[in-house]
Design a protein around this nucleic acid. Structure first.
Lengths: 226, 226
DNA sequence: GCCCGGCTCCCCCGCACGGGGGAGACGATC
DNA sequence: GATCGTCTCCCCCGTGCGGGGGAGCCGGGC
């Protein structure tokens, strides 16, 4: 089921906005093992292109003129033999269409503002035959408003905390696994200073130790995986 | 923010078939750390029972008379403060209702023919706040071999690690911010045992301390925010 | 002028943590 | 029967961590 040797992964981009297509192309083409073999501006053009180009993956916007991503997904899966994997792309959190697309047989979905690494990863995953939902994307979907998103309790904890600039720096470095001594070296201050900041931010976050503080950082979206 | 030492995980079973309820009860009650606190035969009875019993987890069939699992999920999440985690149960793979339920806010789902160990595992996972998309239930549903998502380095580290079942449990609890003593209490073992598992998994993960291990867990998608 | 908050650094101190050992029980595998 | 891995628990030991203090410096606000 895993095609280790198939190089490169071929991708067809389908989006009505040229800018989005260009962005996806740039992100994907930067990978040596991914090749964008074609583009389309609406769902109606997808089927002939899929037949002609035989891409491994179709990255497709859900909202398009003429034929939207849901209908296009259905059409491809119904009419094309050995169909490509389909990743639907959406701009909006909690897009109803996404669920429709998944039911229609899409293999995954992504938010347009996902980080490049996530997009690349998603394409690779579906190309390998993984049919799964991407936690990061779901997190975004479920997520909220503003800079922080995630577990409401964690967000609340971090907002209530009102960390100072230095404390935020220290928390970020803690969330990268650095010890107090390493943080001190990085910030060019003494370890006692770092300990002071750490104690302060632990108290503000209501965390017992650095591990709990880092958890809060992840849960709140203050730092993000990937 | 941090959910410490909640000892028996309390579960409410909701299914129209008494046989299924009996089976679930037998499977779950066999675990010392899981307690079935109530049962209901249809979705309409769920809300008062949730209010009365305050279960940690509701295991709920999707297809039921009167009020199905999707509507019941929506109702619980809309009307109950500090709602329980909800695991929906389905007989069929690729059940359309499952997507509906997830969209309604369910935290996980299970196939009825899952092995007892998987059912128990799923209940523990959602009780710990684990993400719905990662666990074995999804692999089962997707029919594919499970794979981690996220930072490739972190994923690689976790896959290379080949953690034992116990080590995975310990890592999950570490990622909820629990101390060794708390993990020991939760798993009903000695603190020395936990330390042993912690040392072992730290070595396998190439992590220097528990904070770095938790970071790897988040980065790889082994645990997910939210 | 004064005061306050942030950043810096220092002390002492207790303890959880993690490393390095070892060992018995159990089940699976050979 | 012997072997292996897992889970369990024990020892010692050093140290990084975090709590509780205090203190000097600086900039902005009153």
């Amino acid at each position: 089921m895993i095609y280790a040797g198939r190089m490169p992964v071929t991708v067809l981009l389908v989006d009505d906005e040229p800018l989005v297509r260009a962005g996806l192309r740039a992100v994907l083409e930067a990978q040596p093992d991914i090749e964008v073999v074609g583009e389309a501006a609406d769902g109606a053009a997808v089927i002939p292109l899929v037949r002609q180009l035989r891409p491994d993956v179709v990255a497709m916007d859900v909202r398009m003129p003429l034929l939207d991503g849901i209908e296009a997904t259905r059409a491809v899966l119904r009419t094309v033999a050995d169909p490509p994997k389909i990743v639907v792309i959406t701009t909006f959190e909690n897009d109803e269409y996404v669920y429709e697309a998944l039911r229609a047989g899409a293999d995954g979905f992504l938010l347009k503002r996902a980080r490049p690494a996530e997009i690349v990863h998603a394409v690779r995953l579906v190309a390998e035959g993984e049919s799964l939902l991407f936690p990061a994307a779901v997190r975004e979907l479920a997520g909220a408003h503003g800079r922080l998103r995630g577990n409401p309790d964690a967000v609340a904890a971090l907002e209530r905390a009102a960390l100072t600039g230095r404390e935020e720096e220290v928390l970020r470095l803690m969330a990268r696994g650095l010890s107090n001594a390493e943080i001190a070296a990085r910030l060019v201050v003494g370890t006692e200073t770092v300990k002071s900041h750490v104690s302060s931010l632990l108290a503000k976050l209501g965390a017992r130790d650095r591990t709990q503080a880092v958890i809060t950082a992840y849960e709140s979206g203050f730092v993000a995986p990937g």
